[in-house]
Each structure stands twice: as structure tokens, then as C-alpha cells.
Measured scan of single mutants.
Amino acid sequence: MQGVVKVNSALNMRSGPGSNYGVIGTLRNNDKVEIIKEVDGAYEIRFNGKVGYASKSYITIVN
């Protein structure tokens, strides 16, 4: 499943599905991501070869 990031500035990509996990990357508006699955209000995603988590509130599914 594919998604597009929709933010005003940037969205943190984290090592786990919550803000208490470390930041492993930054997503920008209109970045395209692969959605692997939904976990606790976040999506597990793949972006630029990395797998991490981002809030589903800022990712629009575009299948």
C-alpha cells in the first residue's frame, strides 16, 4: 500500500510506533512512502530503504 506525507513542515520517522522512540529520519510534504502495516495509531513504513514508524494522521493512502 502506498501513502503520501501531508505536513506543513516535517514529520519524524521513528524506530517505534510512538513519540517516545528515537528519530531515524525525516519526512517532508509529498514524500511517497510504502505502508507496511498499522500499529497503535501509526504506520510502519518504508522510505529510502529504511523501515520505521510515522503518525498515520499525516499520511494519506493513495492506492
Rank of each mutant, 00 (worst) to 15 (best):
M1K: 11
M1V: 12
M1R: 12
M1I: 13
M1L: 13
Q2V: 14
Q2F: 14
G3P: 01
G3Q: 01
G3S: 02
G3H: 02
G3I: 03
G3R: 01
V4Q: 07
V4L: 10
V4I: 13
V4K: 06
V5T: 02
V5R: 00
V5H: 01
K6T: 11
K6E: 06
V7G: 09
V7R: 05
V7I: 09
V7Y: 07
V7K: 09
N8D: 14
N8L: 12
N8M: 11
S9V: 13
S9T: 13
S9E: 12
A10W: 15
A10P: 13
A10Y: 15
L11T: 10
L11A: 11
L11N: 02
N12E: 15
N12R: 11
M13L: 13
M13N: 02
M13G: 02
M13A: 04
M13I: 15
M13V: 15
M13R: 01
R14K: 07
R14S: 08
R14L: 14
R14Q: 09
R14W: 15
R14T: 15
S15P: 04
S15K: 08
G16W: 03
G16T: 05
G16Q: 05
G16C: 07
P17N: 06
P17I: 08
P17E: 04
G18Y: 06
G18E: 06
G18M: 04
S19Q: 12
S19I: 13
S19C: 15
S19A: 13
N20S: 12
N20Y: 09
N20M: 11
Y21D: 14
Y21F: 12
Y21A: 15
G22A: 15
G22F: 12
G22L: 13
V23E: 03
I24S: 04
I24F: 02
I24T: 06
I24C: 06
G25S: 08
G25A: 14
T26P: 04
T26G: 03
T26S: 08
T26H: 09
T26L: 12
L27N: 00
L27Q: 00
L27I: 05
R28V: 10
R28S: 10
R28A: 09
R28Q: 12
R28H: 13
R28C: 13
R28K: 12
N29F: 08
N29Y: 09
N30T: 04
N30D: 10
N30K: 07
N30V: 02
D31T: 07
D31H: 03
D31Y: 05
D31E: 06
K32D: 04
V33L: 04
V33K: 00
E34G: 04
E34M: 11
E34T: 12
E34S: 09
I35Q: 00
I35G: 00
I35N: 00
I35D: 01
I35L: 03
I35T: 00
I36F: 07
I36L: 13
K37C: 12
K37T: 10
K37G: 14
K37F: 05
K37R: 15
K37L: 07
E38L: 06
E38S: 07
E38C: 10
E38I: 08
E38A: 08
V39G: 03
V39I: 11
V39Y: 09
V39L: 10
V39D: 04
V39E: 06
D40P: 08
D40N: 13
D40F: 11
D40G: 13
D40S: 10
D40H: 10
G41M: 08
G41N: 11
G41H: 09
A42C: 15
A42K: 09
A42N: 14
A42P: 00
A42G: 05
A42S: 14
Y43P: 00
Y43A: 00
Y43G: 00
Y43R: 00
Y43F: 09
E44P: 00
E44F: 13
E44Y: 13
I45T: 00
I45E: 00
I45L: 08
I45P: 00
R46W: 10
R46F: 11
R46V: 12
F47A: 07
F47C: 05
N48R: 11
N48L: 09
N48M: 12
N48V: 04
G49R: 04
G49C: 07
G49I: 03
G49F: 04
G49P: 00
G49D: 09
K50S: 08
K50N: 08
K50G: 06
V51I: 13
V51S: 07
V51G: 03
G52V: 02
Y53H: 01
Y53K: 01
Y53I: 02
Y53T: 01
Y53P: 00
A54G: 03
A54S: 04
A54D: 01
A54K: 01
S55D: 15
S55K: 09
S55C: 14
S55M: 11
K56G: 04
K56A: 10
K56Y: 03
S57M: 14
S57T: 13
S57N: 13
Y58F: 13
Y58Q: 06
Y58W: 07
Y58A: 11
I59E: 01
I59K: 00
T60M: 14
T60A: 11
T60F: 14
T60W: 14
I61A: 05
I61G: 03
I61S: 04
I61V: 12
V62S: 09
V62W: 08
V62K: 06
V62D: 09
V62P: 07
V62L: 12
V62I: 13
V62N: 07
V62E: 09
N63H: 12
N63Y: 11
N63P: 13
N63A: 12
